[in-house]
Design a protein around this nucleic acid. Structure first.
Length: 448
RNA sequence: GGCGCGUUCGUCUAGAGGCCUAGGACACAGCCCUCUCAAGGCUGGUACACGGGUUCGAAUCCCGUACGCGCUACCA
């Protein structure tokens, strides 16, 4: 009979939600969902000078966007709150008082509270990194002097990360700490604190960091570093989440595109790699494109809608949007690509790409072919892709040229572009009236 | 400097002593399909950091070196 798993994601609202942080949150969430445990969000905002409300909001927005719902934490509450460290002063005071009474903590000459380091051998079993021994007596400062006792509260009363992190993990009954490898070297300190507080420590799993593709550390400016960047960049959240699952973890059987339910089922922290993952946005893009291609058309319509609106495209309802989306979706790498591929379906005010025009008109008799096609389509009986194709091909045969000689002018006239989806299907979706009107207009415009 | 962690194609990874002349994916190249652009299909090139052991046999175990990363704060 094992206790219920309780894990937490404990970000500091000092900037933006980093993709590495998002993956840490994701792995915690996966573990909680896999085990039927609880995923807790705790905001570590002890450094008042560096915290911002915007950063806090970015954390909430990013987690929600990725579908990482928390069972306890800000906005949802829970039995172990408050979940903002800035509101937990009394709790820290209580624990510090205990340590003071037991002689583990003392006030130094400046008024800061310091924890007397035991300086002994610390042994830990990390779920990812395995057996680790650290002789704390050997710890040194950069200048080679022995490590000083750890500050747990500043002279100004502000609490220090290591202490509040441990106190909260105790208070919130955290059973497993899954966090970035940058904390591996901090863990011995935390273990010393747990021992001094008389509390059993949680199990630890330190996951490797995410670096840029070239191995350098990611910073805010780097492509793909911020979750907000994916939201603003037209990524599908399921694709980004899928990509993040594969950074440091794999199902071991070559599966890559996986529904989240399957990842939850198969996720095991002990299988996480120990090597830092270099971040390849191109693979994320590929997954994104794949998700756009595979998701139900209605779902895609919901995701694309806001992007079209933002571009001022009035696409009507699903009845008008879906057929267009079905045509162009396999050309979309990002949701943000949609307006450029779709605008001419919803307005007569589309522009003619100068390069496309020049290219088409450079061919001999291009406008004559368009005229011939216009005439043929004017008496077209069935307005569907197959019939339109037959008609165009026979017109080309009559003219004694290849189909391309008819297709390109027609595409230019109907869409203003040289590239796009299947011409016949495009014309079908556009409908007879609009196509014939566009042909007429193009003949006038391009003859000039 | 000290302590800790790591090192398989450019990148994500499979590989837990013989199944590895190292598998998959992204990217790249070529071909096919084709009205363009995509999508899709097929084919191809590129990797076990280095040096010592252990063993009949090592990508896999051990040691060393190199390189990378982390911690070493009254940041988190």
């Amino acid at each position: 009979m094992s206790e219920q798993v309780r894990v937490r994601f404990a970000p500091s609202p000092t900037g933006y939600l980093h993709v590495g942080g998002a993956r840490t949150a994701l792995f915690n969430w996966l573990f909680a969902r896999h085990t039927g445990g609880k995923f807790i969000l705790r905001i570590e905002d002890t450094d008042a000078a560096r915290n911002t409300d915007a950063a806090m909001q970015a954390i909430y927005d990013g987690l929600r966007w990725l579908g990482l719902d928390w069972d306890e934490g800000p906005l949802v509450g829970g039995d172990c709150g408050p979940y903002l460290q800035s509101e937990r002063g009394a709790i820290y005071e209580r624990h510090a008082g205990k340590l003071r009474a037991s002689g583990h903590v003392y006030a130094d000459e400046n008024g800061a509270l310091r924890f007397r380091l035991p300086r002994k051998l610390v042994v830990m079993e990390d779920l990812v990194c395995g057996h680790i021994e650290v002789d704390r007596g050997k710890s040194q400062n950069r200048d080679g002097s022995p490590e000083a006792d750890m500050t747990i509260r500043r002279a100004d009363g502000g609490w220090i990360f290591h202490f509040v992190n441990v106190v909260d993990d105790i208070e919130m009954k955290i059973t497993h700490v899954i966090r970035g490898e940058d904390h591996l070297s901090n863990t011995p300190k935390h273990l010393e604190l747990f021992a001094a507080l008389g509390a059993p420590p949680p199990r630890y799993a330190h996951i490797p960091l995410i670096l840029n593709k070239d191995g350098t550390k990611m910073s805010k400016r780097d492509q793909g570093a911020s979750v907000a960047g994916y939201i603003a960049g037209g990524y599908v959240s399921e694709a980004v989440r899928n990509f993040l699952c594969l950074l440091g973890w794999s199902p071991k059987d070559d599966r890559e595109i996986m529904p989240i339910a399957e990842v939850i089922e198969r996720f095991d922290p002990a299988q996480i790699n120990r090597k830092a993952a270099h971040f390849d946005l191109e693979k994320c893009d590929w997954l994104n494109q794949h998700y756009i291609l595979q998701m139900p058309l209605e779902t895609l319509a919901e995701k694309v809608g806001p992007w079209l609106q933002k571009a001022g495209i009035n696409y009507g309802t699903n009845a008008t949007l879906l057929p267009v989306l079905a045509l162009v979706r396999e050309r979309l790498k990002k949701l943000s690509d949609a307006p450029a591929w779709m605008d001419y379906f919803f307005t007569e005010e589309f522009a003619f790409d100068p390069e496309a025009s020049a290219k088409v008109l450079s061919k001999p008799n291009a406008l004559d072919h368009l005229r011939a096609l216009n005439a043929a389509y004017a008496s077209q009986s069935g307005w569907n892709a197959a019939a339109l194709e037959t008609a165009l091909k026979s017109a080309a045969t009559v003219a004694g040229v290849k189909v391309g000689e008819f297709v390109h002018p027609a595409r230019l006239a109907a869409t203003g572009r040289s590239v796009g989806a299947s011409l016949y299907h495009t014309l079908e979706v556009l409908g007879r009236e609009r196509v014939l009107a566009r042909f007429d207009r193009a003949l006038t415009k391009l003859s000039a």
